[in-house]
């Protein structure tokens, strides 16, 4: 019932205009704390020294790259089944954010790989599937660009999003299913996190900050898409009005 009420575009605009500024403030606070803690306060790692500090941006970016795709696929499924424009717009709004997170995950991972592994890039299952994710985001965004009819674009894009969602569990479990150069999971795994609390806390704050960032930008982008739709409607009505007059 709550979902239903929130799903009304006009109501969504009203509520999100109240929520978004608060999300923005919280994003800034947690991001500054998290990044500063990660850069300057967290202790050096016993194996990697200070190089491991890249974890505080790499893991949140990678996690969000997958979370964002999951969100996009879920919204697309809702869009296909219930044919609600707000669901399609949510998925469309999430795509560039996810693409940015994916690019950052690949870039920071590459700069972490060079000093530690000895290479910027290797075609192992984890790295390759993350690169596929970036191309899925690009493909999804390209559909919206290429197809003029918005409702048709929404349907094709949603199918791309749903087909691609298979890749998300592949990324997550790639390090367990195949042998890779990339190490296995440190936080979400059976037997608890294998990372010391002094390093885990700043990491969790960074993950929270990236989540809040996602919500903030998502709300802004959905607002934009709703407004653009209403602008199209208004233009049509004005054109009709002038013609009739």
């Amino acid at each position: 019932m709550l979902m239903h009420k929130f799903a009304n575009p006009a109501r969504f605009l009203r509520i999100s205009k109240i929520i978004a500024p608060w999300c923005f403030i919280l994003t800034m606070i947690s991001l500054v704390i998290g990044l500063y803690w990660g850069l300057f306060i967290a202790p050096d790692d016993y194996q990697m020294g200070s190089a491991y500090r890249i974890i505080f941006v790499h893991v949140p970016a990678s996690y969000m790259s997958m979370f964002c795709y999951g969100f996009m696929a879920f919204a697309s499924a809702v869009g296909i089944i219930w044919k609600h424009p707000l669901a399609d717009q949510s998925a469309r709004a999430a795509a560039p954010i996810g693409a940015a997170f994916t690019a950052l995950a690949l870039f920071t991972g590459s700069l972490w790989g060079k000093p530690m592994w000895g290479t910027y890039w290797i075609w192992d299952a984890r790295l390759t599937s993350e690169l596929v994710l970036l191309f899925l985001y690009f493909g999804y965004m390209a559909v919206w660009q290429a197809v003029d009819d918005q409702s048709k674009a929404a349907r094709i894009a949603a199918i791309v999003a749903l087909v691609g969602v298979i890749n998300v569990p592949i990324i997550k479990f790639s390090v367990d299913w195949w042998n890779t150069l990339h190490q296995p999971a440190s936080i979400i795994k059976s037997g608890g996190a294998s990372i010391h609390p002094d390093m885990l806390w700043p990491l969790l704050i960074c993950i929270l900050a990236f989540n809040l960032y996602f919500i903030t930008i998502l709300l802004w982008r959905i607002q934009s898409l709703i407004l653009q739709r209403q602008i199209r409607g208004l233009r049509l009505r004005i054109a009709e009005g002038t013609n009739n007059g």
Partner: peptide, 17 residues
């Protein structure tokens, strides 16, 4: 012809070790 290091999933402060 090439050697790459793999690192494990454990992160610990030097002082603790």
């Amino acid at each position: 012809s090439e050697v790459l290091a793999k690192h494990d999933e454990n992160y610990m402060p030097k002082e603790v070790i």
